[in-house]
């Protein structure tokens, strides 16, 4: 069997991180749970934000988790893909806006 850094089964073991640092692990999972509760934003809106961010941070575990979460909430594939594009647009925008820095530097150094 080929070795890989990522194993889909590891997602199930996520809660085990608490075993090596109980206090911090518990605080994290309490916080995480609280973040995704219905609030000023619905749990559905939060799920779509999480899906977009999952792609931006390129976390395969998060992508698996929030695709499934979206399906459970009845979010359809068009909505999911639009969310991914929102993430991608911000990410590429973040790259491109640095073009201004490049332009500034170019102008400063040029005669």
């Amino acid at each position: 069997m080929s070795k890989t850094y990522y194993n889909p089964d590891d997602l199930r073991k996520f809660s085990k991180i608490t075993e090596w640092s109980e206090e911090l692990g518990e605080k994290f999972f309490d916080y995480y749970g609280k973040v995704f509760e219905e609030g000023a934003l619905t749990a559905r809106e939060k799920s779509l934000i999480a899906l977009a961010v999952s792609h931006v941070v390129k976390c395969p575990y998060c992508i698996d988790a929030y695709t499934k979460d979206g399906l459970q909430r009845g979010i359809n594939k068009e909505e999911m893909m639009e969310a991914v594009h929102v993430g991608a647009a911000i990410e590429s925008g973040a790259t491109l806006v640095h073009g201004v820095q490049m332009m500034n530097k170019y102008e400063k150094l040029s005669m």
């Binding site: 399906l71 459970q72 909430r73 009845g74």
Partner: peptide
């Protein structure tokens, strides 16, 4: 019933969407 290998989400939220 979920149309796939996943569990249903909160009944009331789904009802609102439907």
């Amino acid at each position: 019933n979920p149309s796939g290998a996943f569990l249903p989400s909160d009944q009331l939220s789904l009802e609102n969407e439907f």
